[in-house]
């Protein structure tokens, strides 16, 4: 592993001051992405700043009914947290569908948001990759692209966003709190990750030196049923070929509100807005789900080895919507008296 300098920060102001907006420096919390990629020589930080000890390990209900999650809360703690299990079962299901026990014990909430693609060409410092080395090309376009994305792709990059947790955040709606040299600001989760377009090397909206301090979930859908379905090559500890996270609320037999997001098929956590629009006010039956799935995938661009993901994702969407519908009205919420 290349050498780097190391500092520990005990509050966010100190961490940001040490970082100083120098892009050769990086924050480290769980390290499950970063140390892996430093070993592979894909990331080459001159200095790491340990932010795992910042006082950001709390999960708390805000007065407006939202749930504020500290950046350093581990994936395990979050998935098993009573407030998450009760009000955001989609998030608990998605986190527990990802990685292994050990990785979930290490990985943090903000670190999961910041995790990098598993594209083997990105992870191979000898391969052409516009995301790792702008302008070098993309070996995945005509390579072994079975695991690659079909949504949100460009001719510069087709790397899949690997996170399960982020699929739940995309569906549930969330706000990231960022702190940096210029102060504090907030950004909607679904605006945080960028599509690769012409600049796949710019993955997100963080300014130099900025740190994610909190992830705040929108209020849960009243009476919403949740389902996360992940399809993969083995039953555990494997990235998704396609996944779908759905929350469905019903009025009688009609869909009154729905949230749908996809994983394993897109270059960023993918909120399926066209599908949600197609479902609004429709009867909660298989034919509606199929129309919605087609809408979600209408712009999909298959490559040589990944065309199978389109029918696979279609079926994941239909089944996640079916399962979420079956659970609708049974999810406990305490939001009945607000908005």
């Amino acid at each position: 592993m290349r050498p780097f300098a190391f500092d520990t920060a005990t509050d966010s102001g100190a961490a940001i001051a040490i970082h100083g907006g120098d892009d050769r420096r990086a924050y480290i919390a769980g390290g499950t992405t970063l140390i892996d990629l430093v070993k592979l020589d894909v990331m080459r930080p001159a200095a790491l700043i340990d932010v795992s000890r910042l006082p950001l390990a709390e999960v708390e209900r805000l007065d407006d009914g939202r749930l504020r999650i500290g950046a350093a809360v581990t994936n395990s703690e979050l998935a098993h947290h009573p407030l998450v299990r009760e009000h955001y079962p989609l998030l608990a299901q998605a986190i527990l569908a990802g990685a292994s026990t050990q990785i979930r014990n290490m990985a943090t909430t903000a670190g999961n948001v910041m995790q990098r693609t598993r594209c083997p060409y990105y992870r191979d410092a000898a391969a052409a990759c516009n995301r790792r080395e702008p302008g070098s090309g993309c070996d995945a376009l005509h390579g072994i692209n079975r695991m690659h994305a079909v949504l949100g792709v460009s001719e510069q990059c087709i790397a899949t966003h690997p996170s399960d947790m982020c699929v739940a955040l995309a569906a549930l709606g969330a706000t990231l709190t960022l702190e940096g040299p210029e102060g504090r600001r907030e950004i909607a989760f679904n605006d945080f990750h960028r599509l690769p377009a012409e600049h796949p090397e710019i993955e997100h909206e963080l300014a130099p030196g900025e740190l994610i301090t909190h992830v705040t979930l929108d209020t849960p859908l009243v009476g919403g049923g949740a389902a996360y379905l992940k399809l993969r090559d083995r039953a555990s500890y494997e990235f998704a070929l396609a996944s779908a996270g759905a929350v469905v609320a019903l009025e009688g037999e009609v869909i009154s509100d729905v949230r749908l997001a996809l994983g394993g098929v897109a270059t960023k956590p993918w909120r399926a807005v066209e599908a949600e629009r197609a479902l609004d006010g429709q009867p909660a039956v298989a034919s509606s789900f199929e129309v919605a799935a087609d809408a979600a995938l209408q712009d999909a661009v298959p490559r040589e080895h990944n065309a199978f993901k389109i029918p696979l994702a279609r079926q994941a969407i239909v089944r996640a919507l079916r399962d979420a519908t079956a659970r609708a009205g049974t999810t406990t919420t305490t939001r009945g008296n607000q908005g």
Binding site: G31, S76, Q102
Partner: peptide, 19 residues
Amino acid sequence: CTVHVDGRAINSCLRLAAM
């Protein structure tokens, strides 16, 4: 490489000793 840190199983290959 699994060990326990503060009672939880982790991968010691991905955790800096300094942390």
